[in-house]
Structure formats: structure tokens, C-alpha cells
Design a protein around this nucleic acid. Structure first.
Lengths: 314, 314
DNA sequence: CATATATATGCTCGAAGTGAGTATATAGGT
DNA sequence: ACCTATATACTCACTTCGAGCATATATATG
């Protein structure tokens, strides 16, 4: 019953910011030049909690301090997180989501738009062409090539839930996992040692980091709706349109402007400062600030995103 | 930078069922006769994933197979999960939630009502007296005894969010953690080696198992509302009242009967069988079954529990 | 059989919330 | 003056939701 193989704990963080309309994640350059999340082993001798271990690692690699952080998931799958060379043991990887306002990049790190990794997740301008053009045909083939009819039906259902009618912007992880199993992302071939047939969808990442990022996006998209987390990404004051653009960037959807404004106002998430923006064109907008007090109130609401359908413009 | 202390991974499962109106969790008898969740170490040599390791352990300890399972959280706090005697290393503990229909107990295990561990969480009959009588006075003292005024305000806010106006049945973990920090549960004294002043609130558990159970209840109460998970706990056919009682048992709240029925019907979660129950008294109720197809449909709804307030009766 | 009690089930009504759109206000540019 | 772009106010139909009333159907009891 004793564990012969040793285990080590890896900590990884998806550190997210939004610049204008671009949601980005902090990546570090690593071996094989694959993008990686900041990560490192957990040292139990030095740290009382997993999170303090994470903060130290991130501090070292990115030279800045984490604000809001949240644990995502612990992955232990054999083969999807290869142990560091020489260590020989198995790595169990704990993923974190962190939110931050924009900061300058540290050496060897850079902000990268998260839709590079998940181009099918951005429905703001329109439904991405690759879904009808590439993804659905490939997934239909994947379902058809099932070993038995039962598996085929399961796969068809999953394809439909993930990419079919009625886009659910929260199912980021489910979609990535489906594409992985169907061999449509590069990591699949890397993890099982086969050569990739063609270039996979989106930009691959080191280890299981793209899976962790998918988990982060999914969690953030969900949390937006019931907790006021967007404000972690906003400057101290902002216009309502800036706030809306940030939410849209994260959700990958366009929202109805007037209703968004009504929602934010009625929920009391925000208060006017009396100051106004000085835009290049158009009428100046009032600058608002987050009402920190809402965190002390009971329901602590988020921003329900009404508009489910992508639209050309607002 | 190398980890001098070794780490091992502990897997624990909160296995939940509902019998009539009693939500229960499977506990195993352990040292010191404290209740414990089924748990064991993860052996990376033997298992490809964390979940398969969990299934094996649970199978050995409880002699039955898990159905629905879901990872909850990974706790690594020093001091809250003491390593097994002799091992000397640090334990990082991964908690799981599992749902099952009623099964007989295996040797050395038993079902125990979860409100034994969290008596303040059951608002079905009325707001538990202990909240006004014991908890709030003690927490007010805890806030007053803060080292500085800033901490005092933070604590007052937390007390209010957790136990103040407007009960949020999902904040199970936040409430437990607050009671822990305030020294109102036995585990607090055990973990820091001090003798307990008085008997703490609720029944204590081994290690951090009560925290894991709190996480499980919180997650389940939340998930009920947006995914059809209750049906994992129901017999193949059931009356709508049985379904309602199960939801109420989990949420710790009473619901409005007619509205509950309307909700369930409109969402298409359920279909009539044409058969009827044979009750001791009262009109027989139609037996329903879960429409498995909803899992293949897009939004895959849960059961929003409208009634927030506890009431004497339905 | 009449009545009481317990449960099941159908229906209504008002309050609040939501989606979509129209109308008006205020800025800079030509 | 007029165009364009943005901000902001308001409307309206529709849905959802909480709460309650009314009726139906079973058993138990006098």
C-alpha cells in the first residue's frame, strides 16, 4: 500500500488582466519555446499554505505581487504534466486564477491575449468561422469514427452540448477537453508521443497549462455573474463603457449597452464620481468607481450578462 | 530551492445521500473515535488519475462504487491535516464530493446526518436557536477582542455576511471557517494544541474533514441551482414531494410547494410515469422519473430554490 | 354516509426582472 | 448648420417569481 513513486506538487497560475478589449494572460518563455504559465514546485518546508507557496513563486518569476487569487483545480493525470527532467516523479498540478490590473511585464514574461489559445471562444464580433469550417466537421468525424455505437452517441451529445445550438460561454474547459480527445489540439499528440497530423487549433502551451487556462476562463466567466470580480481588473475610476468592454472581453460576447448600464446602476455596484472622461470623439462619459461596500452586503451580486448572441456591433 | 520535506497526497471523499428528509454523509470510525471521511493516500505508481485513486480507496473502505463524483478543493494548510504518525511529511489533501442513492453500510462505516456537524445550517423548521443564542454573541465578542480596529471591522463584516440579515445557504464553508478562527469549534484547539475552553459547536471530525464536508455542502447547495444533480440521489421513480424534500434537506430551507412543482414541470426535468404512489394518508401522487435527455440539452438547468426564508410548515 | 384531515394539483395575480428598442443629450469635426 | 459618435433616459412587451386561493382525491372516524 506504500507509494513507491514520489509525488511532487506543482503550482501554476493563470494571471489575467484586460487591456482595452484584450483579455490577456501572463506567460513565461520556457523550454521548447512553448508558452507556459508561471509555475513552480510547492515546498512544504517553506510554506504554510499552497497559496503562500504560489505567491512566492510568482513573485520570483514575474516580479509582481498577486492580488485576487482563487484555486481552480488539481490535475493529476499521468502523461499530461510531464515531470521535470531528472526528477523522475509524478507531478500533481494545482492551478490558480489570479486577477490584476495592468502592470509592466517583467523580464522573460509577457502578456498574451487569451484568445490566441482559444480562438473559438471569442464571439464578440461574430461566431468564429472556424467552428463551422473546421471544428464541427472534424468533431463529426471523431464521433463517426467511434469504436462502438454507444460511444458514438455519447460523442455526438458532447459535440452538440459544446459547439451546437445555444452557445454557453462557460463551457470553455469542456470544449478544450473535447478538442483534445478528438486530437484537434497539438498537446494531444505531444502527450501520447505521436507526431501531429496537422497544426492543431490555437496556440499550444507547455504541460497541461492550456487546460489550466481553460479552467481559469471558465471559472472567471461563471463568477462574473454572481460576484463583483471584474472590478479587480478595472482602474480606480472608469466609464461604464470601459466596464462593459471588459466584461465583454472576458465573456467573449457582446452585451446590450442600455441594459448593462441599468443592471450595473440598479445593483448599486458602482457610484458616480462627478468627473468625466475626455474622449477623442463623442460625448464625455461620467467616471465611476466600484462601491467597495457591496462586498460587505449580503448577496454580493455580479453582472448577469443578458445578451447571449454575438452581434456585429453595439 | 529543493523540497526537503516530503509531500504526500491525501484523497478524501464526502459521500452524500439523502434518506427521507435526512441528508447524510458516510463516515468511518478512526483513531480517537473521531468521525472521519473515507480517505487514503494517492499512489501515483498505481493510478493514472487522482479520481481513480480515490475510487479504489473508497471501494476498499466502504465496499461500494462511487457514481457521480466531483473534485472540491485542495487543502495544504500546515497544521490542519496532521500527517499520519511515523510518516513525518506534509499532507496535501484533495477533497471530493460524491453522490449516491442509499446503500447499506459496510463494516466500520455509517451514514450520519450532516447537520450533526453543522447544526446551524438547518433552517427548515426555523432559524436554529443557537445562532442568536450562542453563535452571534460569541462572534461579536470575537470581533470586539480584535488586536486592532481594522481587524475588528473586517471581522464584524464577516460576521454579518455569514450570520447576519439575509441567510445565504451557500456560505457553508465561510461560516465554518469563521467559527474555526473564532475558536468556536473543537478542531481549532486540537490543531493548535491548546485545550478547548468548552465543548465546541457541532460534532468535530478528524483532520480537516469537517472543512472538506463544509466545502462539499456549499458546492452541492450551489450546484443544485444550475445542474440537475439531485436526481443522483433519487430512486428511479419518485413523487414531486419526495424530490422537494430532498432538495430542502440539502439546501436546509423550505420551499413553496406549488412553485416548486411548477418549476420542475416547466423546466422539463421530469416526466410522469402514469403510476401513482400509495401513501399512508392523503391523495396518491404521481410517480415521476428524471428525463435523462436534459443532460444532452444546452442549458441543463437545475432547480432554483425560490424560498429563502425558513417557515414552520409547508 | 358525513366529516375531518392530509396530501396532490391547478390556477391567478401582482411585483420584479429582462430583452429590445426609441428618443434625446453632448461632445468634436467640417 | 450639420454630421458622426458616444452617453444617457425612458418605454414596452414579455417572462419569471413569490404568494396565495381553490379544488381534487385519498384515509380515518364517528
Amino acid at each position: 500500500m506504500s507509494a513507491k513513486e514520489s509525488v511532487s506538487i506543482g503550482l501554476s497560475a493563470a494571471i489575467v488582466t484586460v487591456e482595452g478589449e484584450l483579455p490577456s494572460v501572463l506567460v513565461v518563455a520556457h523550454r521548447g519555446s512553448q508558452d507556459a504559465l508561471p509555475f513552480g514546485p510547492f515546498d512544504p518546508a517553506q510554506h504554510r499554505t499552497l497559496e503562500s507557496g504560489l505567491r512566492k513563486w510568482v513573485g520570483e518569476q514575474t516580479k509582481f505581487e498577486l492580488g485576487y487569487t482563487e484555486q481552480l483545480y488539481t490535475f493529476g493525470d499521468k502523461g499530461r504534466h510531464l515531470p521535470s527532467p531528472g526528477s523522475g516523479g509524478r507531478v500533481v498540478s494545482v492551478g490558480y486564477l489570479a486577477l490584476t490590473r495592468q502592470v509592466r511585464e517583467a523580464p522573460d514574461t509577457q502578456w498574451r491575449g487569451w484568445y490566441h489559445y482559444f480562438p473559438w471562444e471569442d464571439w464578440r464580433d461574430n461566431k468564429p468561422d472556424m467552428i463551422e469550417g473546421v471544428i464541427l466537421p472534424a468533431l463529426k468525424k471523431f464521433a463517426k469514427d467511434s469504436p462502438d455505437s454507444e460511444t458514438a452517441e455519447l460523442r455526438r451529445d458532447r459535440v452538440n452540448v459544446c459547439f451546437g445550438e445555444g452557445w454557453d460561454e462557460e463551457r470553455v474547459l469542456e470544449r478544450y477537453e473535447l478538442l483534445y480527445e478528438a486530437g484537434l489540439v497539438e498537446e494531444f499528440y505531444r502527450d501520447c508521443g505521436k507526431p501531429a497530423k496537422s497544426s492543431g487549433l490555437g496556440t499550444p502551451m507547455l504541460f497541461d497549462h492550456r487546460r489550466i487556462l481553460a479552467t481559469a476562463i471558465a471559472r472567471l466567466r461563471g463568477k462574473l455573474k454572481y460576484r463583483p470580480v471584474v472590478f479587480e481588473l478595472m482602474a480606480p475610476t472608469f466609464t461604464l463603457l470601459e466596464l462593459q468592454r471588459t466584461v465583454e472581453a472576458l465573456a467573449g460576447l457582446r452585451l446590450h449597452k442600455q441594459n448593462f448600464r441599468r443592471l450595473v446602476a440598479e445593483q448599486g455596484l458602482v457610484e458616480g464620481t462627478g468627473q468625466f472622461s475626455t474622449p477623442v470623439r463623442g460625448r464625455p462619459a461620467e467616471l465611476f468607481r466600484f462601491r467597495r461596500e457591496v462586498l460587505k452586503e449580503r448577496p454580493a451580486p455580479g453582472m448577469r450578462l443578458g445578451a447571449r448572441r454575438a452581434k456585429a456591433a453595439v
